[in-house]
């Protein structure tokens, strides 16, 4: 049994979703241009990941397993995530317009964010308990936000840098991401 602390540290630093598991690269590259949008996207991802895990975990163990339908987990989970994101968007728009304006714009992007589906599937694969799954989801989201926020700082410097024309834009962004990822590799000895 992994202790809660190990799961926390591992989800944020060692197995960072973006920089070492390569999940959610599209929003990482697309939204990290500004600090404000990184914060918004990060908060939205933490929220959706936590709620998606809270819903999919009982669905897997109390609906799919008793009926021997484990192989349907991909179909069931993605459907739940898509419906949930849609519902949250509608609800936020009606109930809390200010929150919708700061977070809601990122919600449609999250349905197809593989980090969300990834975290729900990995929680099942790793055999976590409900509490461990929730902790893992929250801190995976925190790790995702951390990567996004750090990288938005790197990118603001990159804007003004003098780069050969062939590398301008996405290629230089990817190479900068590689250096950030290199720095996260130093955490890999933290948990054996």
């Amino acid at each position: 049994m992994k202790s809660i602390l190990v799961i926390m540290i591992s989800a944020v630093f060692v197995d960072n979703f973006v920089l070492s598991k390569f999940m959610g690269i599209c929003p990482f590259l697309g939204v990290s241009k500004k600090l404000s949008s990184s914060l918004g996207m990060g908060a939205a991802v933490i929220f959706v990941m936590t709620c998606a895990t809270a819903i999919t975990y009982p669905v897997y163990w109390y609906v799919l397993v008793p009926n021997n339908l484990q192989y349907l987990n991909t179909v069931a989970f993605i459907l739940i995530i898509a419906l949930f994101v849609q519902l949250v968007e509608i609800a936020l728009k009606k109930v809390m317009p200010p929150l919708y304006n700061s977070l809601g714009v990122y919600l449609p992007l999250i349905t197809t964010n593989c980090a969300v589906l990834g975290v729900t599937l990995l929680n099942i694969d790793n055999g976590y308990t409900f509490l461990q799954s929730i902790i893992n989801a929250v801190f995976a989201g925190v790790g995702f936000s951390l990567a996004l926020i750090l990288f938005s700082g790197v990118r603001s410097k990159l804007e003004t840098a003098d780069i050969p024309a062939t590398f301008k834009g996405i290629p230089s962004t990817l190479i900068a991401a590689s250096i950030v990822s290199l720095s996260f590799m130093a955490f890999s000895g933290l948990i054996s």
Binding site: L19, S20, K21, F22, C26, L29, G30, K33, A165, T166, F167, K168, G169, I170, P171, S172, T173, L174, I175, A177, S178, I179, S181, L182, F184, M185
Partner: peptide, 28 residues
């Protein structure tokens, strides 16, 4: 490792654009 993945992809995209004689895409 993960760092190498980002690096190789960046270089490959830059090369493809060089060969095609296009400006690399500025954003996703």
């Amino acid at each position: 490792m993960s760092a190498g993945g980002f690096f190789v992809l960046g270089v490959v995209i830059a090369l493809v654009n060089k060969i095609a004689g296009k400006k690399p895409p500025q954003k996703i």
